[in-house]
Amino acid sequence: MTSASDLQFKSINYTGLGEGPRLIVTGAVHGNETCGTIGIGRVMAELDSGALRIANGSVTFVPVTNPLAYRLQRRAGDRNLNRNLFPNPAPQDFEDRIANWLCPLLAAHDVLLDLHSFNADSEPFVMVGPADNDGPLQPFAHAASEKALAKRLGVRRFVDGWLATYGAGVQRRLSDASQLQTVLRYGVGTTEFMRSTGGYALTLECGQHRDPQAPEVAYRAIMNTLAHLGLIDAPAPPAVAADQIEALSMVVVHDKLDQGDSFARTWRSFDPVEVGTLIGTRADGTPVLSELEGRILFPDVNAGPNQEWYYLTRANPAFAAQD
């Protein structure tokens, strides 16, 4: 029997003698996504043995961000930690209590690398943030630094546009505009919170949950990040070649309107679609067709009515040219 009262939070910091940025690396934000935990453990073993040394700045590791979900070997404890991630003076669930510890820890750092995995078979990818802007949704001033790091994590696929696309879907489905800011908070996870504090952040999806290569992807990304930021004495990792990059921007989210809405096939993230591709069928028989050429993302066969059903992305060729 697992009791939340038996659990505690743990972070480990290594600080060099020289000046440098403050990096934080998180694993197991979702408890069944353990590749980051394994990758972090491998790097920490090298630091503890003396095989690796932090020369400049500091790095904080959080091997298990959600200890309840991790102990239960499932995605969440009481709820999804990576949504509505804000300090809560009157915590209602275990994830609120994590947030009250985690959010100040994130705010004390400059850069976040958040390590995840996913359910379907696909290649690793990085979720990146918005362009520099001073808008109300997600103001940001470190897009160039964020993209430069993203291109050095060791993967070739990049996706941007999460919060803006999610927010547009929220606005569309809300009947009461006064609820907008409250509901938009649900779209804020680790990286969005980190950017709100003035830092920058990347979510690396390292591979399928049980892929034996996923921990290797996590380890390589941590080592490349340490080298790129100058925290260790190591050659700077090269950026992925421009002709190898696949960059996608999330464009639109479509909701499931009725429990009877169904997909036309078993979709996986990054499956290609053309204009007119049959995505699914509404409960009344109306076909649901793709309005653009691109790739489907996060198709959710278990979505309920008035929930996100799938996202569509299109190619973002400008990303490859930016550094």
Rank of each mutant, 00 (worst) to 15 (best):
M194G: 03
D271E: 11
T65V: 04
V170S: 08
R185H: 13
R152L: 06
T197K: 12
N88M: 07
Y200P: 02
V62Y: 06
V170T: 11
R152S: 09
P139L: 08
N224Q: 12
A236Q: 11
A264W: 02
Y70F: 15
A90P: 01
R74K: 12
L115S: 13
L231D: 07
R42E: 14
D114M: 02
G260E: 06
A315L: 12
H30M: 00
L229I: 14
A241D: 11
L202F: 03
G199T: 11
S122I: 09
P238R: 04
R71D: 10
V59R: 10
Q92E: 15
F298Y: 11
K10R: 13
E246V: 02
L289E: 10
Q244D: 15
N316K: 13
G260D: 05
D255T: 01
N306W: 00
L204W: 12
R74N: 10
G285R: 08
N13C: 09
Q138F: 05
R185Y: 05
E95R: 07
F9N: 03
V170L: 09
W101H: 13
A141F: 08
P63K: 00
L174A: 12
N224W: 08
A120T: 14
G50F: 00
E33Y: 09
A144F: 00
L112M: 12
L115I: 10
F94G: 03
P237Y: 08
G31R: 04
P136C: 09
Q171G: 14
A318Y: 04
S262P: 00
D300R: 15
N80R: 02
T286V: 15
G77N: 08
T203V: 14
G207C: 06
W101L: 04
Y310I: 12
Q259A: 15
D261G: 13
P305I: 05
R282S: 09
I40V: 09
G260C: 05
A131Q: 13
Q181V: 02
T266I: 06
E205T: 02
T60D: 03
V252W: 01
H142K: 15
H228R: 08
Y200F: 15
E33T: 07
P130R: 11
R152W: 07
N80P: 00
A242P: 00
A141Y: 02
I40A: 03
C103H: 06
K256N: 05
P317E: 14
G27T: 07
G276E: 08
F118H: 15
T26A: 05
D160L: 04
P299Q: 02
W101K: 06
V251M: 14
A221C: 03
I98H: 03
L312M: 14
V29W: 01
P124N: 01
G304A: 08
L229H: 06
Q179M: 14
N82L: 08
V188M: 08
T197Q: 15
I279G: 00
D134Y: 01
P91T: 07
A108D: 14
G31W: 04
A283P: 02
L112D: 01
A90Y: 06
F193Y: 15
I232R: 03
N119R: 11
L106E: 04
F9Y: 10
V252I: 13
L72T: 11
F319L: 06
F193G: 09
L278A: 14
A321R: 12
S58D: 13
A247H: 07
V288C: 13
V217I: 15
A214P: 05
R265L: 02
R195D: 11
L52H: 03
W267R: 03
G285L: 09
I24Y: 11
S178I: 01
A241N: 04
E293Y: 00
T65P: 00
